[in-house]
Design a protein around this nucleic acid. Structure first.
Length: 853
RNA sequence: GCCGAUGUGGCGAAAUGCCAGACGCAACGGACUUAAAAUCCGUUGGGCCGUAAAAGGCCCGUGCCGGUUCGAGUCCGGCCAUCGGCACCA
């Protein structure tokens, strides 16, 4: 190579080094002074694009999971800006919740102060990381401007019968000293305190009737084609729809009282040999009234169930029960069946009572074996041998493809047919009905905590439960509250808050002192971003109609059920209220993978925590962000490696030097701005081809699978290619140099390709190139397929699938030509060794495979 | 137990039926330097053959076993392991 004698290296002067801190603080300060760069336009001729990342809880500092989440969203937002969209990219704070109270207790700082201070800090971190949010639309859920609309919605829900009060068993976390929704109980423990067993308590609670929307929430999952299948499946399982039949068994010798049983297999009812009740079933009180000994045994069962539920191994409980000595009448055949009470029957599913069919249910079988209860076969498997029509199966036989026997008029039917006919029969006879049961429960939203939205209800001795009139909203959360005492809601110890007058009769009354679950806040916050300062309504419906649905929502999979099912519910209610037109809030959902280190989730106890602050201080925001995108594809788990960030930082330094010292050469403006000639010499043409191939790859990654790791790898390859290009360092004789117009195209495009991922450096280089325009509004580069196309390609030639040779042929070579060249190839002929060619597989532009026998 | 995802060099990973390991890290060798840092150039899955050294060639290799296919990391079936969700749901 002629330039080997040139010094390949030299000492790098200070200005040749990459100083992320200098570059980033310079732009940070500019953007601090003018943050209009990232504003969404209220009205625009441009098409809209709403990209949203899940809002954080302001715990105090950002962690790497946040950075990853926001780096993905920000890259997309920037890409869409450059593609000419009116982009809405907002951020806010899910700022009610328990940690603020705990911090208040341990640090003696009021929750409000603590929270607002954390928000300041995290907002500064976000800005330092260069995320492009429209801060003019910032939403902070703990401020009255926001939570008054929670209260307003609550009143509307109440009017529509979607909010109701009920005494019920609730999940109680002794650590939180409050109630948890079913969704917040994990393995029998609190979702925030993994070691704290959840207790069951009986309390008066407010519920939202999400079950009314169960069917639609389930059905519409099919429409969410741009959601990960995993999330849809998790929601489907959570809703847990099952079709079945309610059947009333009359109590023998009773006063006409019934036991209602839910079953999905009414076809097996002729095999029912007992009734099993949950120990907490209401009728148990009657059955045990005159039998203290039985009562004691039932209490024992209750205690066992609670314990099992608390420990979280409900499935492993040793099944046992007691015979009440009473019987019920099977309405299908008038048969007497004994009533038992068993610890494996749950009160909170179905009716809390089952018919036990030992021959056709595993649990019933196990139970019957233990107590030597009668086992009666009423379903036979269909025979595989046509001579035999039915087969006696091994027990328990639970499959649905069988034939009924010993089932009165229903004998001979298939199971599925029998379920239909027998349900109908029950309806006609008035002792049962086909029905649907859900696992999903109504959403209990009362929390006996201070730092949340006060539930706007008043209790009057005379008028009962009275909603706070809309005009009196917001019900302000008082500031000075002693939250260190335990037991009951903190607000109940604030007389000024508690005591009020009844809006109806004007008499003395008391306020509700519970606050709302914080999942209420996050169920509709993304609507508020569209119209964040509206004082008359939660938002303007027309404005929402412009922006919704959210085009792209990005967050962790841990919200697959809780937040994402509540928000879907909220949207459907708002639609029914006429506030929004969309059935679903989110068009596309993306769930990014976790950030781990050394094979484990980052945690203080493991000492493997890497903080964004230290990374930004060492390598800068661009490198930190770029690394989270480069390490792996966004949907996968990211294993953090400090050396990786180092590598990314070196790459950015190379890109900087390439643009600054190699591509920007002294040439006059007219030369620099001239069009790239079409007759480039081959080496320059090769660089140009690489450029267009890179644009293609990065663009396709954005439009398709979001594998930004490969996009960034492509840009690295481009940098490597340009750097190694002949003629980059000096002018070769004749026309063998990288002409200024080509250098300009290379430099500009490289900067544009980096812009979504490394905004600071991109802006710096853009300015360095003498560009005056707004980088975010610079059109995303387009590739020219003709320029991206290879002129010559190397084609592997295989014999029976094994690589034997390679051919270099023109990219547009005819198939016949390639085939001939392949068969004529010296190595191929040697390998063939005169054997007969069976056929030749030719994949155009890809390979040749010669098949021999 | 049921449902789902994942499994590729020393490491993070590429490869959407077609040259396995792009890109990056680490390691090693070299250039530059009084020296170091930085930077630049090069080598790097394993084994074998070949050569003075190269060039070059062959075989094996994507958790395991089998199948489909001209061709499998990729598709199908069965195992194993790890992770995640649900779990007496009647």
């Amino acid at each position: 190579m002629p330039h080997d004698d040139k010094p390949a290296t030299r000492d790098y002067r200070d200005d040749e080094r990459y100083h992320p801190q200098r570059i980033e603080t310079k732009w940070y300060e500019r953007w601090q002074q003018d943050d209009s760069l990232y504003r969404a336009e209220a009205t625009s001729t441009l098409p809209k694009y709403y990209v949203l990342e899940m809002l954080p809880y302001p715990s105090g500092v950002l962690h790497m999971g946040h950075v990853r989440n926001y780096a993905i969203g920000d890259a997309l937002a920037r890409y869409m800006w450059m593609n000419g969209y009116n982009v809405l990219h907002p951020m806010g704070w899910d700022s009610f919740g328990l940690p603020a109270e705990n911090a208040a207790i341990s640090n003696n700082v009021p929750p409000r102060e603590w929270t607002l201070h954390n928000i300041d800090n995290m907002k500064a971190q976000m800005k330092r990381l260069g995320f492009g949010y429209d801060w003019s639309r910032e939403v902070t859920t703990c401020l009255p401007e926001y939570y008054r609309w929670n209260q307003w919605f609550f009143l509307k829900f109440y009017e529509r019968g979607l909010a109701y009060r009920k005494k019920s068993k609730v999940n109680w976390c002794p650590q939180c000293a409050t109630v948890l929704a079913n969704e917040q109980v994990v393995n029998g423990c609190c979702w925030r305190h993994e070691d704290t067993l959840v207790e069951q308590r009986e309390l008066e609670q407010w519920f939202l009737r999400i079950t009314k929307y169960a069917e639609e929430l389930l059905g519409d999952l099919d429409k969410l084609e741009d959601w990960p299948e995993k999330v849809r499946l998790m929601q489907r399982n959570w809703i847990g729809r099952s079709e079945g039949t309610l059947v009333n068994f009359k109590l023998e010798g009773g006063t006409g009282s019934n036991i209602s049983v839910f079953t999905t297999r009414v076809d097996t009812i002729y095999g029912a040999t007992s009734i099993q009740l949950a120990p907490e079933h209401p009728i148990v009180a009657d059955l045990t009234a005159s039998n203290p000994d039985l009562r004691r045994q039932v209490d024992q069962l209750i205690a066992e169930q609670r314990k099992a539920k608390e420990v979280g191994d409900v499935g492993a409980i040793d099944k046992h029960g007691v015979n009440t000595g009473r019987c019920a009448i099977n309405p299908y055949n008038g048969e007497k069946v004994p009533i038992w009470i068993a610890n494996y029957i749950l009160m909170d599913y179905g009716t809390g009572a089952i018919m036990s069919v030992p021959a056709h249910d595993e649990r019933d079988y196990e139970f019957a074996k233990k107590y030597k209860l009668q086992i009666r076969i009423v379903i036979l498997a269909r025979a595989t041998d046509p001579e035999e029509t039915v087969v006696e199966p091994p027990l328990p036989f639970t499959a649905l493809d069988g034939t009924l026997v010993s089932s009165g008029p229903f004998s001979g039917l298939s199971c599925e047919e029998a379920i239909k006919r027998m349900s109908k029969h029950a309806e006609e006879q008035g002792f049962g009905i086909a029905t649907v049961s859900y696992r999903l429960k109504d959403w209990g939203i009362s929390r006996q905590r201070y730092w949340g939205t006060p539930i706007p209800m008043i209790y009057c001795d005379k008028d009962g439960i009275v909603p706070v009139p809309e005009k009196d909203l917001p019900v302000i959360l008082p500031d000075k509250v002693d939250i260190t005492l335990t037991g009951g809601s903190p607000l109940s110890r604030v007389p000024e808050f508690l005591t009020t007058t009844c809006p109806k009769c004007g008499g003395p009354a008391k306020r509700e002192t519970d606050t709302m679950d914080t999942f209420v806040d996050s169920s509709w916050y993304f609507y508020r971003y569209t119209d964040a300062h509206n004082e008359k309504a939660p938002f303007d419906s027309k404005t929402v109609a412009y922006w919704f649905p959210i085009d792209q929502y990005i967050g962790g999979v841990e919200h697959a059920i809780l937040h994402l099912i509540y928000s879907r519910f909220w949207t459907k209610v708002m639609r029914d209220m006429g506030l929004v037109r969309n059935d679903e809030p989110v068009q596309r959902l993306f769930t990014q993978g976790m950030v781990i280190k050394d094979g484990a989730k980052m945690s203080k106890s493991l000492g493997n925590v890497v903080t964004p602050d230290e990374m930004v201080a060492r390598y800068g925001a661009d490198s930190t962000r770029l690394y989270t995108l480069f390490a792996t594809s966004p949907d996968r788990e990211l294993d953090w490696q400090d050396e990786g960030v180092e590598g990314i930082s070196r790459f950015l330094a190379r890109a900087l030097r390439l643009v600054k010292f190699k591509l920007c050469i002294n040439s006059d403006q007219s030369e620099w701005n001239a069009p790239v000639p079409s007759d480039l010499f081959p080496e320059a043409r090769a660089v140009q081809r690489k450029l267009h191939q890179t644009i293609k790859r990065v663009t396709e990654d954005f439009e398709g699978r979001w594998h930004f790791n490969t996009s960034i790898a492509a840009v690295m390859e481009l940098v490597n290619t340009i750097k190694a290009a002949p003629g980059i360092d000096y002018e070769m004789p004749g026309n063998k140099e990288l002409l200024p117009p080509l250098r300009r195209e290379l430099a500009r495009t490289l900067v544009l390709l980096l812009a979504p991922f490394a905004p600071y450096l991109a802006h710096e280089l853009w300015e360095m190139l003498g560009e005056k325009g707004n980088l975010l509004r610079e059109p995303w580069p387009k590739y020219d397929p003709a320029l991206a196309k290879e002129e010559e390609i190397e084609i592997p030639v295989q014999i029976n699938g094994k690589l034997r040779s390679r051919l270099v042929v023109p990219a547009d070579a005819e198939e016949e030509f390639v085939r001939e060249r392949a068969l004529a190839d010296e190595k191929v002929r040697a390998a063939l060794n005169g054997k007969q060619v069976d056929k030749v597989i030719l994949v155009p532009g890809k390979l040749v495979n010669v098949v021999i026998r």
